[in-house]
């Protein structure tokens, strides 16, 4: 009776089975490490785009001052971004554990370490101004991103009762006031104080949309403390 080694050798020779070449395994390993690196970079880009997104819609307006806006708009947006980052970190973990020695590391080590790399890389990209680039790229090429961004921004800024208003100037400034039409077509008489700040080179004569920070002063009246362009430009950053 044929022994198992004999059977195996016979089958190998009969079916002309060959060991897969070493480069196949090396390529697989390289591919996995590339996927790990790409996922980390992608998560960092998502993070830095989120930071830019939040800054662009006006995160510098203190959430303590407008808790409802913070609760209803900012937290859901940040959660959505965070979910994408977490899903990417999960992909990092999955690819990493499939590398040669990846299975030896525990999840509770790999995930926090990956998150730390993403945060550090994100901060580095943020410091180099990459957030604006990725945000502009997403506005141009990611479906629905532009609409989502603008709708979110309008939702955030259409709270005159909370001191946030957005719209377009209808008339040129006449000394200390002008007329603005908001996003739902209401007209507002906007008054300015001597110390009102005009940010980012806002030109009321061009009819560009603007954002105002100030105080509602009765129905249809608003006192502006800060005037910002609706679309942030590089020079206004």
């Amino acid at each position: 009776m044929e022994s198992l080694p004999e059977k195996i050798i016979e089958r190998i020779q009969k079916e002309d089975i060959k060991p897969s070449p070493r480069w196949v395994f090396t390529a697989r390993e390289v591919l996995l490490w590339c996927l790990v690196a790409l996922c980390l970079i992608f998560a960092a880009i998502i993070l830095v785009t989120d930071i830019y997104f939040l800054r662009d819609i006006g995160i510098d307006i203190l959430p303590e001052a407008y808790p409802a806006v913070w609760r209803n708009i900012i937290i859901p947006i940040s959660s959505a971004w965070l979910l994408i980052v977490l899903a990417t970190l999960l992909a990092v973990y999955i690819y990493y554990t499939r590398t040669e020695g990846g299975y030896r590391s525990r999840r509770r080590v790999v995930l926090p370490l990956s998150a730390s790399i993403v945060i550090l890389l994100g901060l580095l990209l943020h410091a180099t101004g990459y957030g604006r680039l990725s945000h502009d790229y997403a506005r141009s090429y990611v479906p629905a991103y532009r609409a989502w961004h603008e709708e979110t921004k309008r939702a955030y800024w259409m709270h005159p009762e909370a001191g946030l208003l957005t719209g377009t100037f209808l008339t040129n400034p006449s000394g200390t006031s002008l007329v603005l039409i908001d996003e739902i077509g209401r007209q507002w008489n906007i008054r300015f104080a001597s110390d009102t700040i005009w940010e980012g080179g806002v030109n009321s004569a061009t009819g560009d949309p603007v954002r105002l920070i100030g105080t509602e002063d009765g129905p249809g009246f608003f006192v502006a403390r800060i005037v910002r362009p609706f679309t942030t430009t590089a020079s206004s950053q």
Binding site: L4, K7, I8, R11, I12, I17, K18, P19, S20, P21, R22, V24, F25, E100
Partner: peptide, 20 residues
């Protein structure tokens, strides 16, 4: 068992170059 072992040893043979 014999069937499984045959497949195991063929798989090992195919993957010999991946042994670390």
């Amino acid at each position: 068992v014999q069937d499984v072992l045959q497949e195991v040893f063929i798989k090992i043979y195919r993957n010999l170059n991946s042994y670390n």
